[in-house]
């Protein structure tokens, strides 16, 4: 039996399991990027279409998760590209919306954080949420967003600095930059 066939079947099974387990995670990420349940749902569906239709492109199951989230990110880019040709998706800031006043302390906190995340430029929002919600490594985020690891770090830094200004009363004076040694860098 040709080896490639065995690998192909194994890969399809693994992909099947991955998508089965990832749909809610993809939705959560899409929601964190857009704060729009309808749009998030659409993006996830488009991502699943694309993943299923292009599964042959996936050569390494080890990179499958990042591949799936990269498809999601590309679907978001396509969405904004279709909406407005001139503005880069990286620069998009989701408009702040007034949310209904919530009574619970937990909900108030959640709303406050989401409002702060919503104010981030999309490029920073994506990096922050991929790292914080999914626990992706910087190298994986770089793969997903197709940007250098250094850019991941700088966007994360700017994003978290902005969030701190909204969420934590701390001074954000710049500190001297120093090269950082990462344990995992692609």
């Amino acid at each position: 039996m040709p080896k490639s066939i065995i690998l192909g079947i194994s890969q399809r099974r693994a992909l099947r399991k991955l998508v089965e387990n990832s749909r809610e995670r993809l939705y959560r990420m899409a929601y964190a990027w857009t704060h729009d349940p309808h749009l998030a749902d659409d993006l996830v569906q488009q991502s699943i279409y694309k993943a299923l239709n292009n599964q042959k492109q996936l050569k390494d199951m080890g990179a499958a998760e990042a591949w799936l989230f990269r498809i999601l990110s590309n679907c978001l880019k396509d969405h904004y590209r279709a909406k407005r040709d001139v503005v880069s998706a990286d620069d998009v800031v989701i408009a702040d919306e007034v949310t209904p006043e919530q009574n619970t302390e937990k909900q108030q906190l959640v709303d406050k954080v989401r409002r702060a995340v919503r104010k981030l430029p999309m490029a920073q929002c994506q990096v922050v949420t991929l790292v914080d919600l999914e626990g992706f490594t910087y190298a994986s985020v770089a793969e997903i967003l197709e940007i250098p690891v250094g850019t991941v770090m700088s966007r994360l830094c700017r994003g978290r600095r902005a969030l701190k200004e909204h969420l934590i009363d701390v001074g954000t004076a710049a500190t001297p930059r120093r090269s950082t040694t990462l344990k995992r860098v692609k």
Binding site: Y31, V110, L133
Partner: peptide
């Protein structure tokens, strides 16, 4: 980091 995770 915890706050962001908690919010979603």
């Amino acid at each position: 980091k915890e706050l962001v995770r908690h919010a979603y």
